[in-house]
Computed example of a mutant assay.
Amino acid sequence: MAITLTEAAARHVTRYLSRRGQGLGVRLGVKTSGCSGLAYKLEYVDEIAPEDLVFENHGVKVIIDPKSLAYIDGTELDFVREGLNEGFRFNNPNERDRCGCGESFRV
């Protein structure tokens, strides 16, 4: 079981946490949403709960709640720039389908 970050994603998170002035890492999880059923949620973390799972890549902690891990195990989090757009991309091997707008996915 593992969640990984690319170097680009780790650089982006590190820069953001530095500007923010606090934070232990980034929390990756899923929530019920959208037309395909699940959506990724990503937030910066100031506290780690005892039940959280912590993965570290390129010096950045990725915190996962145990319920989300079944849906995102093996996911690689990347940060991409395409033209004027930039954002995180989730490369999830468990993903079987994604809605047309890209907001939600199904496993």
Rank of each mutant, 00 (worst) to 15 (best):
V107A: 05
S33H: 15
K31C: 10
L69N: 08
E7W: 03
R20S: 00
I72F: 10
A2H: 11
K67E: 13
C99M: 03
T4L: 02
K31W: 05
S18W: 04
N92E: 07
K41N: 11
V107I: 14
G74K: 10
V45A: 13
D97V: 05
I72G: 04
A49D: 14
L38Q: 08
R11Q: 06
D65T: 12
R11W: 02
R19C: 00
K41V: 13
G74V: 08
V45G: 02
K61N: 15
D97S: 14
K61L: 11
V80N: 06
V62A: 09
N57V: 06
V54S: 06
H58T: 05
I64Q: 08
K67R: 14
T14G: 00
D73H: 12
E86V: 05
Y71C: 02
R27Y: 07
G21P: 03
H12F: 03
E51I: 11
F88N: 06
G83K: 09
L28D: 02
R20E: 00
G34P: 11
T14W: 00
S33M: 13
T14V: 00
R106Q: 10
E82Y: 11
E47F: 13
F90G: 05
V80W: 05
G87P: 09
T14N: 00
P50I: 08
D65F: 13
R20A: 00
A2R: 09
P50H: 11
T4G: 00
E76S: 06
E76G: 02
L28R: 00
